[in-house]
Computed example of a mutant assay.
Amino acid sequence: MTAPTLPTAPAAPARDRPATPRPDTAVGAPAARRRALRAHLGTLVGTAVLAVLLWRLGTGALLDGLRRIDGPAVLAALGIGLVTTVFSAWRWALVARGLRIRLPLAAAVADYYRALFLNAALPGGVLGDVHRAVRHGRSAGDLGRGVRAVVLERAAGQVALAGAGAAVLLTMPSPVLAEARRIAPPAALALLGALAVVLALRPNRAPVRRGRALRAVLGEARAGLLSRRSLPGVALSSVVVLAGHLTLFVLAARVAGSTASVAALTPLAVLALLAMGLPLNVGGWGPREGVTAWAFGAAGLGADTGLGVAVVYGVLGLAASLPGAVVLVVRRPGARYARSPSEPSEPSESLEPSEASEAVTVAAVSSAKCSPKESARLASSSFPFSADPSEGRPMTPESV
């Protein structure tokens, strides 16, 4: 006599089973919150700097600087902006070519103008660069290389600014001349020591995968910036762009009523440009105004005048980027660059500016997960990038 068998409950359909959270999603949520917190913190710091300046110095200098801006000043800013934008776009195209991604100069100029306008109009000051990086990468069929091309292009500009700034601040009279000369030798020794330690420990301690990634990054940096085809153009364009920014600062000083010589204004302009690189601003406003007001006050030129110069510089910089607003309106959000016939067909999408800050992290993760075979296949294909727009589907950060 056999024991009766108990009926078993049918297995729940797969769609009714509780979904197990993905490990990468659980890990990525705190990182996304930290990135959002840093972005909001930068905006708050920039707003606080502006509030303190207006509280201490009043609104007189700000309003007086705005009243002094006239048509000739705006036209001059547009001319300077045209020169700096064209050379910046040329530098970007050279770096992209070094990474084996085609980028026509006309398309690069249009995208660069749009990025400048978005940087000036949106908080953070980098969303325009994120937009052009993701758009170019997706249009070229290699998101990782598109992002790295923009990162290397921006790094080249920052290196040029840091080198010229160090030379100016160490040789020309400025409020930080004595402090810069005191800090420069130990800072240089510390940098050399840190580099020696890294080189000594890297062969023994660095994991194989990390070492390969580091070699790949250094190889792309050499190809994009330091090769014989790229280095002369990158250096020349960086010098011209930096000279354009300094010229715009001198123009802003003249419009604001400052009669200081160009030699006296140059180190102050370098300090202002270095402050603009801090990620603690609201569309570029905040640290620039604070540092410029302090530098002018320390140089005996008046903190009020410094605040007025910074405000005029910000307005003229926004005016110089206004062609980017035209590009933003004329070029459809779904527009993409046509691929070469040898490139596999794939829907190309564009990034909305409001979603750019989240997409840059997704782009970095996507590039890190790209297999060597896939990168080699994309690198060996013919140039997949041209300036012919066509319709596409709007892109969300999840689709990156």
Rank of each mutant, 00 (worst) to 15 (best):
A12C: 14
R15M: 10
T20R: 14
P21N: 05
R22C: 12
R22P: 00
A36S: 09
L41I: 04
T43H: 00
T47S: 10
V52G: 07
T59A: 14
D64N: 15
S88V: 01
R97K: 07
I101E: 04
A110G: 03
Y113P: 04
A115Y: 08
L118V: 10
V130D: 12
H131K: 06
A133V: 01
R135N: 15
R148M: 09
V151W: 11
V151M: 13
A155Q: 06
A155S: 14
A160I: 03
G165E: 02
A166S: 04
M172R: 00
A178D: 15
E179D: 08
E179N: 01
A180P: 04
I183Y: 04
I183E: 11
A196M: 08
L199K: 03
P203K: 05
V208Q: 15
G211I: 04
R229G: 10
A243L: 14
G244F: 11
T247R: 06
F249C: 04
A253Y: 12
A260I: 11
P267N: 01
P267S: 07
L274R: 02
L274H: 01
L278Y: 03
L280D: 07
R288E: 02
G290L: 14
T292W: 05
L301I: 11
A310H: 04
V315S: 04
P323A: 08
R331C: 03
R339A: 15
E343L: 11
S350L: 06
S354H: 09
S357V: 03
T361V: 14
A363D: 09
A364R: 11
S367Y: 08
K369C: 10
E374T: 10
L378G: 05
P384V: 00
P389I: 06
P389T: 00
S390Y: 15
E391N: 02
M395S: 02
M395C: 08
T396I: 13
S399R: 13
